[in-house]
Amino acid sequence: MTQPLLDARALTKRYPVGGGKRGAMLHAVDAVDLTIAPGECVGLVGESGCGKSTLVRLLARLIDPTSGNIFLDGADTTAVSQARFVTMPDRARIQVVFQDPSESLNPSFRVFDSIADPLKRLLGVRDRDKLAAQVHRAAELVGLPRELIERYPHQLSGGQRARVGIARAIVVEPSLLILDEPTSALDVSVQAIILRLLADLQARLGMSYLFVSHDLNVVRLLCSRIVVMYLGRVVEVAPTEELFTAPRHPYTRALIASIPDPARRGEARPRLDGSPRSPIDPDPNTCRFYGRCPTGTDRCATAMPELLRFGEGHFAACHFA
């Protein structure tokens, strides 16, 4: 097997909570292993509060992990703190496209400056002509008309802002692009444009994608492999088609059954009721899904299921998978 582009091992992030309870910890991300091969597109799904956003921020080196390592082409990026990582050459290699395009653009920066800033900072491009050439090239790649480059974000439509967000991320030619719900704030017609653009960019530039979304129908369009998270842990990893046709984890099954589908109108489908367990100091020997799981037994309350292999690239963390 070739060396993965990104290899996260036992990545953990805990936050102290509350003043009263001494030492109580919120387990946002708990011992997550994740690899992304060069040119691969991996999907990450899970409900709100499952730790997707924290995982994205960890992988993007916006926050430091409590423990665990992130290797980029075999080099441990977590050897330095995120504050120092900002100035390292590897900083340019992982970029993020943020969720809300209107909030992720500096309102006082023109489009040009938004795209040029990472070029200046990360690649040290100082020459004005060279800078302009690269900004224009990135804008062209994402299909942003030239006349919009001197505008402010509030003068752009949602779809145009999304393009600027993508242009800013790819202008430094990253190896891994993390897409954090890139289309959730957009209308479907614009979403279609952006999804096609992303597919096209990946084909042309050969980047790896980590595509985070709550919409499984969107994730499956672009990704070859999908990672499902539940309450800070990875519960299932599988090739996309296999995940949809033969999900192993009961949470994945419920998730897939919940996708609205006119073709399955009126069918009784498994529903996931109730609320997740508390992420604060969870019992390390209890499955995180226990209590909400339709098949939970005593064993689930006394032993945390490990992520086990169920086929080529298919892993699930359930005693009954």
């Binding site: 916006l62 504050a83 100035t87 900083r91 653009l105 500096n106 920066f109 800033d117 900072r121 800013r168």
Partner: peptide, 22 residues
């Protein structure tokens, strides 16, 4: 914690430039 500030950090800005420029 806003997107554009995180984006500025992704874009290689250290704390002081993030504050002063963004």
């Amino acid at each position: 914690e806003m997107g554009y500030v995180e984006a500025a950090r992704m874009g290689g800005n250290r704390a002081l430039p993030v504050l002063v420029n963004h």
